[in-house]
Structures are given as structure tokens and as C-alpha cells.
Nucleic acid binder design. Sequence first.
DNA 1: CCCGTGGTTTAGAGCGCTCTAATTTGGAGC
DNA 2: GCTCCAAATTAGAGCGCTCTAAACCACGGG
Lengths: 332, 332
Amino acid sequence: MARPTMEDVAAKAGVSRALVSLVMRGSSKVSEHRRQAVLDAAAGLGYAPHAMARSLASRTSTLLGVLVSDLHNQFFAEIVDGIDEVARTEGFELILNTGGLDVERERDAVARLLSFRPAGLALLGAAVPTDVLAAAARQLPVVVVARPARIAGVDTVNDDGGLGARLAVDHLAGLGHSRITHFDGGRTSEARIRREGYAAAMRAHGLRPDVIRSEYTDAGGEKAATRLLERGASLPTAVVAANDVNAVGALSVFADAGLTVPDDISVVGYDNTALSGLRHVALTTVDQPRAEMGRLAAHTLVHRARGGRGRAQRRLVTPSLVVRSTTAVPRR
Amino acid sequence: MARPTMEDVAAKAGVSRALVSLVMRGSSKVSEHRRQAVLDAAAGLGYAPHAMARSLASRTSTLLGVLVSDLHNQFFAEIVDGIDEVARTEGFELILNTGGLDVERERDAVARLLSFRPAGLALLGAAVPTDVLAAAARQLPVVVVARPARIAGVDTVNDDGGLGARLAVDHLAGLGHSRITHFDGGRTSEARIRREGYAAAMRAHGLRPDVIRSEYTDAGGEKAATRLLERGASLPTAVVAANDVNAVGALSVFADAGLTVPDDISVVGYDNTALSGLRHVALTTVDQPRAEMGRLAAHTLVHRARGGRGRAQRRLVTPSLVVRSTTAVPRR
DNA sequence: CCCGTGGTTTAGAGCGCTCTAATTTGGAGC
DNA sequence: GCTCCAAATTAGAGCGCTCTAAACCACGGG
């Protein structure tokens, strides 16, 4: 179980520990002769450098701390994937914690991540209080993803929710819809941004906004759709849902009510998750480039870790509309 | 940016570094008086121990390496969630890498994880070659999840795929189905186990197995369903799909062909992913307790890390059937 | 033959902590 | 007041590595 150390390699190769260190770090000022001797010795012993010892001695870190509010959520999993992609190519490792949107637990998770003195910290949709983040940002680069925030020294990466909502409305209005209802995502700031984007776009088309309070879940979509149907009389001809699962929830309620989508009512989702792409669902939706957000977040962190200064950046990625089969020209 | 060290705390509290170390580790042999002094000094300086230095000095690790073949896959994301849950309560941290089922990349990922000398290594559905795992297992506890494998010294956690397939067949046979086709998952060993379980269950009911080669994807399900329909004449009355997305793929093809589910044809999925629970899909499926698998994997690792010896354990978790709306008594 | 030169190699001090062994302390008991 | 002992505290070595500064080593020029 006891792995060989640099000392062992040095002894076997007949050189000093320092020289082995140079070879391991790929220094160019080592004679080819010695390099081979060291490499051979290392291979013979099955030696590989001890990342923690290296980190401690060099006072640098190749760890990126990642706090995910909820891994169940495919949305975040894909952002992690984007971060991982960049981390791998840039030579960083991810150290991961989940927070479950519980403030105390997330506070603890941040502390635990920081105890490893990572090169940077990424928070995905986390509920960590602002002051904790501000404090963390004084010690290392911090990036907040998928949560609009303005904290001194903290970079952020978000999609342009206002634009996304507008894309949905423009698409529907373009098809000839005039009664378009929005099922919103509740009281998160992202939901607020989308809601306001929706309202602004509606007014821009000379239409009256109509919002039904909902949430980012299947059940939320069902409930909102049910409430909509209960209003009886003047049903809208289209719905802009809070996100994909919300849209699917609505879809099933409409189907049960005997409404045909998209003929009786059009539905647009948000996120372009794998779900929406299933042929069985074929949901028209707004694509939020998640992997791109993850990559951007990682690049930001790496840049800062390498000494990149400058004021906090608030990056917005551009969403795009993916038209599938749940939207069409209104029948009425 | 320079965080205080134990030395700083010791100076401020007027004690030795060793005493601070004892306090930080919660030793019981420190006088209450000094403990408070140290704690106060630490709080005043905003001190928190350096996990890597601690790890190096104590020759122990609180890191668990996790290699996930694919985080996009919700199945794995939920296993990670289970691992994370246990890691948190047991005082471990997760260091994560994705492999993307690329052998070279996974080999590299394993090496990188090992360079941190973690306390254990978990592989989720990874394609890492057996010899790499066997070598790793000689250095630290290794657990392979969601991939049936027999490697010396390597523990495994899998669901009982044979039983899962049998549950599906029993359910359908119990409803009166006699022509039940299986869309399989290709040539992974998990797929083989399910296929064999399916075949055995069919024979136990005196029925003839009928397998269409497929894969664990939406498109795979569509293709298999299309091939089934092309056979014309004697359509089966039920399908046991490779997994949930495969089932959903089949569902949409059946719908397009004018077949009603479950009246014309029943469909059973596998995995009980969030997808199958959507009211719009309402897929009868076999639940594979993913979080439980993750927890089991983490416990195994923690147990071994704490010195647990004994031969490799091959754990099987028990799947269960979740009946929703895609199965019913056959019409014909 | 000595010196300088540039390229290699190495000694040795630390990184921030733990751990063992040794030292100090504070009473209890006489 | 002195001895003893257990409890509390500390000195110092060392975990596996990096990094600075110094040492070494041909070799060509004067």
C-alpha cells in the first residue's frame, strides 16, 4: 500500500530529489541522459507525484471547488459537465459538494471546500448568503452560475433570461398568437427576470401580459394549467412555461382536458433539457447553453487563478429558440 | 489573500502550535481555559485548518475519488448524490472526474484522482480496463458501481438486473400477456444480465422469449419499435424496454403508428428516472434505487478506508416494479 | 594553466500540519 | 514543604514535495 516517494526514485536513479522534481515537472534544463534515468526509475517503481504534497510545497492549487445546489437537476449536472471539460484540459481537478438549497448546509459545504484551499470556487444555483460569498471572494476567485447576483469581487455567469422569454413571445406572436399566458418560476431572481422579459415582450407586441404564478416543476405546471382551465371562457392560445418540466406538466393536463397541442394551444418550454428533445415530447423550447455556461465559469476561474485581475464580470450567455412540435399557428 | 496558519493562532493565543492542533482536532485532553483561548484566537483571525497539510502530516485522506462515465446521464448523477450524502455525514469530500467512456481518458482520470491519494475510489459505469482497476485496488479501496465486474479486491454495487427483468415479465404475464418482446441494451454486461433474466422469466411462464437488439437511448427505442412494426403480422402485446428513454422512444413510434398504449400494446421501462414519473409519460417501470446504490458504494469505501478487510463484496440492490399507466390487460 | 561561462545538479530550508516523546504543571497526600 | 503522579503542554522531527541559492562541471579563451 505504501507508494514510493520522490526520494525512492532519486535513490534508484542515482540523482538528487531535486532533479527528480525537475523531471516530474517537465523542466527543460535537465540533460536527456538524466531525464531518462529518472523516468525509468519512476516507471520501475510505479511512482507518481503526490498532488497534495506538491500543492503544499508550491503554494498553488489545482483544485476547483464546486458547490451544486442540486445534482438531481439535470440542468446543473450539465453545467458541471462543462466545468469538468475545461478543468480537465487546463489541468485542474474538481472537488464537489452539494448544498440542497439548505443555507446552513451550504455554508458548511463552502467551508469544507475552502479548507482544501482550492484555486477557485464555483457555485451553481446555490443559496449561499451573500456575505459568505463576499468573504470567500476575499480569499480566492469565486464565480456564481445560474443565479443573478451582484456581489463585490464575484463573477457571475447566467443566461439572458429576459432575452429567452422574448424569443418565446416573439415566436408565438409571429405565428399570430395574441393571448399568451406565462407560467412563471416563482420568486427566484431568475424567474423574475424571465417574467419581466415576457411582460416587456408582450407589451412590445401591443399585447397584455398574463402571468400565472407557478414553479419549476412538473407538478407546478399541472397546477398552473389546471387553474388556467378553471378560468373557463377565454383560454389563451399559447403558454410560455417556466421551464421544460413545467411545460410537460401543463401538456398532460391539456391532453386530459381534450385539448390538442399545438392546434388548440401552443406551449413553449425553457432549458432545452434532454426531456424536451424526446420525440414523444417534442417541445418547442428556449435553449440555455448549459455546458457553455459551465465552460465559461471554469475559464473565468482559471483566468483569475492565474492572476487575472479586473472588476467582477457579469457574463450573460445567449439563449436560442428550438422549435419543435408544440407550437403552431393558432386555430382561433 | 494569505490565510493565517496554526502558528499565527498559537502566537495570538500564547500557546504552542501543538496545542492549537489538539484543539482543532477536538482533543479531550486540553484544559477548558486554553481551549477557549485558542478558539477565540482562531475566530479572531478567521483561521481554519488547511486540509491538505493535515492530510499530508497525518498520512490520512478525507477525499473520495469518483469517476463518472457520464454526468449527463441522470442515472449516474443520482448515484453521485447518494455518495455525496454519505461522504458528507462521514466527513469525506468528493473529488470528481468524468470519463466519457473513453478508455484513454478514463485511464488518465484515474491516474489524476490517485495523485491526490484519496481514501477510496468509486467508479460509476466506467469503462476503465480491468487491469487498471486491479492495480488501483492494490493501493486503495475501490468500488465499481453499475457495472457487473469480478476483479480481485474490488467491491461492486449493482442492481439485480435479472430480478428486475423478471419483475417486468411477471407483471405482464400476470396481466395475461403471452407475447412479450424485449428491446435489449446492447452488449454491456448489465444488458446481458437483464436479457437473460427476461428470457428465464419468459420460459418460467412457458412463453417464448423474443429479443430485439437495441440500446439505452431514445433513438434506440424508436429503431427497435420500428423494426417490430415492420414484422407486420403478429405484433406482441407487450414490450419490456431496455430502459426508460428507450421505452419513451418506442412509445412515440407506437403512437405515430396509431397504436394505443396500453390497450394495443403495453410498455415497461427500466430505471424509474424522473422522466418516467412525468404524468405525460406515466411509464410503468422497474425502479433501480440509485441513491441507495450510491450510499452503499460510499459506505463500502468508508468501511474499507477505516481498515475493513475481507474479500471483495458483490452487492446487489433489489429493484422493484412501479406500475403506472403504460401497462394493462391485453385487448387481444 | 587559470578564469569565466553557461548549462546542470544539488543542498537545504520550508509549505502547514500531526505525532511521539519529553517536559512542565498543579495538586493530593503525607 | 516535599514528593509523586496524572494531566496538560510543548519541542522537534517529519509527511512528500518545491524553490532559491549555491555548487559543480566541462570547455574555450587569454
